[in-house]
Structures are given as structure tokens and as C-alpha cells.
Design a binder for these strands. Structure first.
Lengths: 216, 216
DNA sequence: GTCTATAACCTGATAGAC
DNA sequence: GTCTATCAGGTTATAGAC
């Protein structure tokens, strides 16, 4: 590519001038900040402070705050789309398919808890303006279809697939969104994102969801 | 009381001078605004705009934005505490008790959807600083106890009462928090807070929760 | 108790040097 | 590509008249 040996060396230096690196640093810091305050509450100042570069770089690469927000959303969804596409949901029994998609989702949110809060902010502050199509298609449609199939095959109770999908997402994701409120249910200092706690949540949530759907 | 006939008459006038009325108007508008942006995103300007009085009144009655936020939280919790206290959760079979507390909670959030979003904001933005004791005691502790009792009596599956309580809350409340994201699952224009939709959610959520806990 | 006016500060965004 | 300096507009909070 267009990487001469000279420019390569410069990248390793302290005051690096790597565009891609700078962009992804900004995106990382922005994701944290948007996860804490949403589009409305996020401060570009704070984003810059958590980056190795200055505020001006944000506007150089992303034009304005809203475009930066969109870029963060898109990157987060790209991760989700990639994960869902790795699953074969059609040729799998409903219960196993639901387990697969649930596990995929929860383990991703465990690694990237920002996703859950950003999407909640998106709903409340922006009324889903930047969300819509991709999100429904990526998160809810596959789940609804699995549920519908399970109901038809008689392995799941007779539920409304849409309500069920939303309530299942709630059971999976609320733990992450509300973790700072509910942490006091556990011993002081317990980190709800620790591997042990997260895996416990995964187990509890999946068993709860499956039991909640299974026909008696 | 200290209400002379003269002051009584003044209250009815257009440019009323009723302290309690003004305070509650501010609280109403503030609740809406905090529900949209949390403590961080709320604008006192916007609160004043949705009140019949001016911004200066907010500071006259509530000192600063944070104290106003606390007042809103306290009023919202007072409603919740009152509703929970009306229930006899101890002398009721676990399943019925859980149904009662779930129904009470969901129907309150249906009437006051602000509560659910404010508490989510509280978790994410303020890390539960203003939440803590009252909330755990009011929302989670009673539910945890019911679940624990149900497990002991063998009517519920062997679950961790804390995880279960959180996941149940998620199944009940996520519908409200994420309604603007998930509304596209239904026909365009569908209002997820309408009486029909809300009662459908109540039914679906409660059956899901009970089925999710019930021992086979 | 309520208003208008304004102080003091914060925040998004840009210009221009390097 | 990156920085410093800065502007314009927004935001919290207060002073003082009525």
C-alpha cells in the first residue's frame, strides 16, 4: 500500500501521525462518552481529554458531534451484524437457536457494555432517530422469527413474538444497563462485569428466558 | 390554615401566586425533562419553558439543578413506596405475590413512564449516586424475598434471587425504556403506551416471568 | 412570589500556524 | 495531521425591581 518505510517508522514515534490510529482512538473515547451521556450529554471536550489528540482532531475527522455519534453507532452495529451472521439460526431447533443468539448477544455486551447503554440513550433521547432499520433487522427480527417458529412447532408457549422478543432482550440487557443501580444487591465492591458475574448472569438469564418460553 | 379569604381568591386568578401549585408545576416539568436527558442532559431553560412560571422560580424553590433532581426522584419513589405498601406480600403464595408486585409496578410505569427512564439515567450517568438504599429496598428487596420464598417452597426453579429479580425487572421495564427503539416492530403509528398495548405488555410480561420461574 | 436582566461559565465549532 | 487560540452561542445561577 501507500506506506513507505519512512512513514512506517514515524508511526512508532511518540507524537504519531497515523490517521487510522487517531480516528479509532477518537471513536473509542467517543463510544465511552456517548455511553455515559448519550448524544445530548456527551462533551467533545471530555472525548478529547480521553484521547491522545486534541479536540480539533474530532472535527477534522468527523465534521461535527452528530456525525461522530453516527460513526460510533455504525461501528457498534457492524460488530453485532458480524456476530449474528456467524450463526446458523435457520437450520437449528428453536430452543438452540434462541440460546445461540442470546449467548452471542450477552457475551458481546459483556465485552462491550457501551452498546447497551448507547442504545437505551438512543431510544430515550433521540426517539430512535439514528436506530431504526439496521437495529430491528439485526437484533429483533431474527429473535422474533425464532420465537414464531418455536410457537408454530409447539415447543414454545403461545406468545406474541414481538412482545416476547422485547421482554427477552430486557431480561438479557437490563442487567448491564442498570448495573450501577442494582450492584448494591451484592456484596460491596462486586463488579457486575467481572467474568464470574457476567457468566453467572448469562446462565441465569438464558435459563430464565428458555423456561419463560417453553411449552409445558 | 393561613388562607385568608383574600389570598384564596387570588389563587383562582390568571397570574396565580400559589407556592404549592408552582412547586408542583416545576416538579412535573422537571420530571419530563430529567426523563429525557437525565441530570446531565436536562436544561433548566427547557423545564421553565414547560412551566407557567419562569426559570428564576426553579432556583427560588429548589436552589439548584441537582436539588431539583433529588426532589423529582423523591416524589417518584414516594409513589412507588405507597403502592408497594398497599400489597400484602408476606401472607400470599409466592406466585400470586410476584404477580401482584409485577402488576403494581408495570401499571404504575404505564401511567408514569418517566420513572423507568429516570432510573436508567440514574444508573448510567450518576452510577446510582442518588439511588441506592430506598430503591433497592423498594423495588428489589421485596421481589428478591418473594423469589427466595418460592424457591424454598419448591414452587419456583432454583434460581439466584438477585439475578432473577434483576432479570424480571428487565423483562417488565425494558419495554418502556426502549419503546422508541422497538416501536418499529409494530405497525407504523402504534403507541406502545396506549391502554391496549400496555395491557398486552402486562399480560405477556407477567406470563413470561411466571413461566420463567415456575418449577416444572 | 414572580419577573427581567445579566453575570460567569461552559461547550461546540473554526481559523490559522506549524 | 496536529496543535493553540478564540469566537459565538448556550447554560447555570443570581441580583434586584415589582
Amino acid at each position: 500500500m501507500a506506506n513507505s518505510p519512512t512513514s512506517r517508522k514515524k508511526k512508532e514515534a511518540a507524537g504519531s501521525r497515523d490517521a487510522e490510529l487517531t480516528k479509532s482512538r477518537i471513536l473509542d473515547a467517543a463510544e465511552d462518552e456517548f455511553a455515559r451521556g448519550g448524544l445530548l450529554g456527551a462533551r467533545t471536550e471530555a472525548i478529547a481529554a480521553n484521547t491522545k489528540v486534541t479536540k480539533a482532531m474530532i472535527y477534522y475527522y468527523f465534521e461535527d458531534k452528530e456525525k461522530l455519534y453516527l460513526a460510533v453507532l455504525e461501528r457498534a452495529f457492524a460488530r453485532r451484524v458480524a456476530a449474528v451472521q456467524q450463526l446458523d439460526l435457520v437450520n437449528t431447533p428453536p430452543e438452540d437457536a434462541l440460546r445461540a443468539i442470546g449467548k452471542s448477544f450477552i457475551s458481546e455486551v459483556t465485552r462491550h457494555p457501551n452498546l447497551s447503554t448507547i442504545l437505551i440513550f438512543e431510544a430515550i433521547q433521540n426517539k430512535g432517530r439514528f436506530y431504526k432499520d439496521i437495529a430491528i433487522a439485526t437484533l429483533y427480527a431474527p429473535m422474533s422469527q425464532i420465537i414464531e417458529r418455536g410457537v408454530k412447532e409447539g415447543v414454545f408457549r403461545k406468545v406474541d413474538p414481538r412482545h416476547a422478543a422485547v421482554n427477552i432482550m430486557g431480561a438479557c440487557v437490563f442487567y448491564f444497563c442498570a448495573r450501577e443501580n442494582v450492584k448494591h444487591l451484592w456484596e460491596p465492591g462486586t463488579d457486575l462485569l467481572s467474568p464470574e458475574m457476567a457468566s453467572q448472569h448469562l446462565d441465569e438469564a438464558m435459563e430464565f428466558v428458555i423456561a419463560g418460553l417453553r411449552a409445558r
